[in-house]
Structures are given as structure tokens and as C-alpha cells.
Design a protein around this nucleic acid. Sequence first.
DNA 1: ACGAACGTTCAC
DNA 2: GTGAACGTTCGT
Length: 297
Amino acid sequence: MSTAVDIAGPSSPDQAHSSAKIPNEPLRPSLKRSSHPYSLSHYISTPSPAVDVKGLIQPSPAQQRSAQPGHTKPRRAPSWPDMWESPSGLHLAHAAELLMRAGLLALTPATSEQASLGAQSSQPAKREAAEAKEAKGDGEGGGSGPEEEEEDSSGCGADFQPFLGAWFPFSPALFPLAGFQMGGGHWRSAAMGAEGIEGLVAEGYSPGSLGGGSGGRRKRKRCGECVPCRRQTNCEQCSSCRNRKRGHQICKYRKCEELKRKPGGPGFENRVSGFDLRGSDFTLGLAQERSSGALDG
DNA sequence: ACGAACGTTCAC
DNA sequence: GTGAACGTTCGT
């Protein structure tokens, strides 16, 4: 966009420092092949005029305090990339992912485009839906789409509504940011397109890597599609970043959403806490509907 | 061989 | 329940 501020590159020493270490692209090779229309740098280099959204995700004083280590380095003034780089950016990241999920599963009517897309990905998608159904299991038996949303109104939906109202009119740039595409009057998620789902199955979610294989201790891979995976830089402030040598952990804000979930076992998504759980159930419920064709009609 | 990072264990 | 540290796996 024309009003782009150059914030794609390292805008501070610590950013430069971190980006020097972190590859400037998603981990999974499949992402390099992905036909995703935008790079992250594109997203963040095309801020909408509605920087007001910063106010929405500005961390509370308490959050800011907790995000600062006791012997902190002086913090630079917040900038647009800080929405992602700061711990508060995680909230945006989570919300963005929810948007992405909702966009994929709730806002995208079945179309011929999808049919052709399904030619590539229907098998993995069906399989994933089936697995999701299995995992969800006897507990919630048959939730249908709309009912699912109603159910969620106390959870995800309720939490999310204020964001919807605030974001949609003001910050279209957040959509590409979250991997959205708009076309034909509906939203779909580019990030979770055919390649994405296929990729999950093909690369990160083979039975062996889910613990069903030898030893059950195989490492899973980052999905490469979720918002944390799409982050390019370490925050250099979280415990994982500070203790990288001893901790051997990836930056907390780059930790894959999928890897946060415990693998294997029926209802494993139920062990996920709070925000993610609701998002997953929301997604799964809609996925079930889709797989059963309830949303197609 | 080395670095990155996931999985597990343990202390709080 | 959460976070830190360690052991291990994986990719280069």
C-alpha cells in the first residue's frame, strides 16, 4: 500500500539481533512452496490507517510490568511491529488466529471453488475432520454448526465480539495479517488452504509423529501456519528467549499453537486451556458440520 | 558436529 | 498448574 511505513525490516537493535538468528521464513519447506499470496513482511508493511487498533491490544500496565524482567533493559516506544513483538501481540495473534479459523469454517460457504480445492485436499481434510470427530468423541456427540456457535457465545464468541466490532471496520490490514483473503464476497483463509491442511497431515501429523510410532517420543513439527509460527522474530524477552542456552525452548510467542496441544488420545483438545480450547472446539464443531455436509446445503 | 527446538521431569 | 532445566531428536 502506498502509506506503508517501512517497518518490515529490523527497526531496532534487538530486532536486528533476533532476525539475524531466526530464518526470515516459515520453518516448513512446504511453506516455501505455498501459494500464500503475502509474506509476513507484506502484512506488516501495509498497515491500515486504523492504527487505532493498537489501543485495543495495548497491554495493561500490569501486563507491561509482568512482561518486563526485573533488571530490564529500557524499552523502546511501541511501534507497529510491537503488536507482534511484544507479549501483548500474542493477544492479537490469538485473536487473529481465531479470525482465521472462523473465516475458514464459518464464513466460507461451500462453493465450486471449494469443490476444486477439495479435489486436492478433501482427503486430508476429511480425515482431519473425522479425527476431530473421533477426538471430540462421545462427550459432545452431535453439535451442529449454529448450535455450536450459540454454545460458544459464552466462550470464544463472547470474548471475541468486541474484537470483531472493533477490527472489522477499522483494520482491513489485519485480515491479510491473519492470512485472510477476500474474494467473491466471502472470506477464506489462505493460511489454512489446501496446502495447509495437507501439510499438517503430510509433514507434522503423521501417525508416527503423533506418538503412535516407535517409542511415542517422536518430535512433532511446527505447523508453520499458525500465527506464532508465522512470527519471524524472537521476542528476546520471554523466559525461553532469555534462557535459550539452558532452556532449549523456542520463544514463547513463536511456540506453535499445535504443539501447545497435547498430542494423541481422544479428547486431547479438551486438555487445552481456555482460549485455545474454545477456538478448537469451535473449529472442530464446524469442521464436523462441514464434513457431514450440513453447511454445504 | 552443531544448533534449534520438542518432550519430559522436577521444583515451586 | 506453571515455569525452568535437561535429555533427546532432528535438520543442516
